[in-house]
C-alpha cells in the first residue's frame, strides 16, 4: 500500500517536471533556444493563480482560465519584444539572456507579492481520495488528471490543427515554412505562448501542493534534467523523462538513506547521458534552419 502511495505522489510530481520539460522542448525544437526561465514562468503562473483565486477571490475555474490567458500573452510578448531581437546572436548570449530573465522574474515577483509564503485554496484542497483503502491527497490526482488532459489537447493540436502542423513545420525547416507562407516569427511567438501556458497550468496545479514563493521556479532545474533524459527534442520524451524522475525521487526518498532523493534527478540524467548520449527518445533527423 505504501508503495502505491509513493508511486502516485511520484507520478504527480513527475507530471509537474514533465510539463515544464515540455516547455523547454517546445521552445528548443522551434528556435534552438534553451529557455532557462521556464521554471520561473511556472512561478509566475502560480502567483497569477494565487492573485486571481486567492486575493481577488474569483471562482477557481475562472481564475485558472485567466491565469492561462495572462501567461500565454506574457509568453507571446516575451518572445516578440525581448527574445526575437536576439536572433543571430551567439548561443551563449541567448542563454545568458534567458537566465537573466529568470532572475528578473524572481525579483519582480518578490517585489509585487512580497516574500510572504502564499498558498492556494482550491475546491479540492485538503480532501482525501479514498481508493480501496488507499488515502491520497486529491491534489496529486488533480495534477495527474490535469497533465493527461493537457497532453491530449496538445497532441490533438499538433497532430491535426493546421496551425499545429505549421508549428511543427516551422520547427523542422524554417525557410521552407516561410516559402509556404507561414509567418514564422509570429508562429515562434505562439510557441512561446504555448510554453508559458503549459507552465501556467503546471504552476496552478502545483500551487496547492507546494508553497507559492519566488523561489519555486527552481523546480525547473530538475525539469531540465527530465528534458535531457527525454532527448531534448521529443514531447512524449519530455513527459516520460519527468515521470521517470518524479517516481524515482519518491522511491529514493522512501527506500534509500536520506540525501538520495535530492540527487536522484541528476544521477539519472548522468546515467542516461553516459549510456545513451542523445537521450532516450532522440529523433532521427537533424533539423534544418
Amino acid at each position: 500500500m505504501e508503495f502505491l502511495q509513493v508511486l502516485i505522489t511520484g507520478l504527480g510530481q513527475g507530471c509537474l517536471y514533465g510539463l515544464i520539460a515540455l516547455g523547454f522542448v517546445l521552445i528548443y525544437k522551434a528556435t534552438e533556444i534553451v529557455n532557462f526561465a521556464q521554471g520561473d514562468l511556472l512561478m509566475l503562473g502560480a502567483f497569477f493563480a494565487v492573485t486571481y483565486i486567492g486575493i481577488l477571490d474569483l471562482p477557481y475555474w475562472l481564475g485558472f482560465l485567466l491565469t492561462i490567458i495572462s501567461m500565454a500573452v506574457f509568453g507571446y510578448l516575451l518572445d516578440m519584444l525581448v527574445i526575437r531581437s536576439m536572433i543571430g546572436e551567439s548561443q551563449l548570449s541567448i542563454i545568458i539572456l534567458t537566465i537573466s530573465i529568470g532572475f528578473i522574474l524572481r525579483a519582480v515577483a518578490g517585489g509585487i507579492w512580497g516574500s510572504d509564503i502564499l498558498s492556494l485554496e482550491t475546491p479540492y484542497s485538503g480532501e482525501m481520495a479514498n481508493i480501496e483503502g488507499l488515502v491520497i491527497g486529491q491534489e496529486y490526482l488533480v495534477v495527474i488528471a490535469g497533465t493527461i488532459v493537457l497532453s491530449v489537447i496538445l497532441f490533438l493540436f499538433f497532430k491535426f490543427s493546421s496551425l499545429g502542423i505549421a508549428m511543427q513545420a516551422s520547427s523542422q525547416n524554417q525557410l521552407a515554412a516561410y516559402y509556404m507562407g507561414v509567418p514564422v516569427k509570429r508562429v515562434f511567438s505562439l510557441i512561446w505562448a504555448i510554453s508559458a501556458l503549459v507552465a501556467a497550468v503546471a504552476g496552478t496545479l502545483m500551487a496547492p501542493i507546494s508553497l507559492v514563493d519566488p523561489q519555486m521556479g527552481f523546480i525547473g532545474i530538475k525539469a531540465f534534467a527530465a528534458a535531457v533524459i527525454g532527448g531534448f527534442g521529443s514531447l512524449p520524451g519530455a513527459l516520460i523523462g519527468g515521470l521517470i524522475i518524479g517516481i524515482s525521487e519518491q522511491l529514493a526518498g522512501t527506500y534509500l538513506p536520506t540525501g538520495f532523493q535530492e540527487i536522484t534527478a541528476y544521477l539519472i540524467m548522468f546515467l542516461v547521458l553516459t549510456l545513451r548520449p542523445k537521450g532516450l527518445f532522440a529523433q532521427i533527423q537533424q533539423k534544418k534552419v
Binding site: I165, A166, A169, L175, A177, Q283, Q285
Partner: peptide
C-alpha cells in the same frame, strides 16, 4: 529538396 522531414508526405503536401 527542403522537405519537412518529420511530417508525413501528405502533411507536407497540405503545408503547401
Amino acid at each position: 529538396r527542403e522537405v519537412f522531414p518529420l511530417l508525413s508526405v501528405q502533411e507536407n503536401l497540405l503545408m503547401g
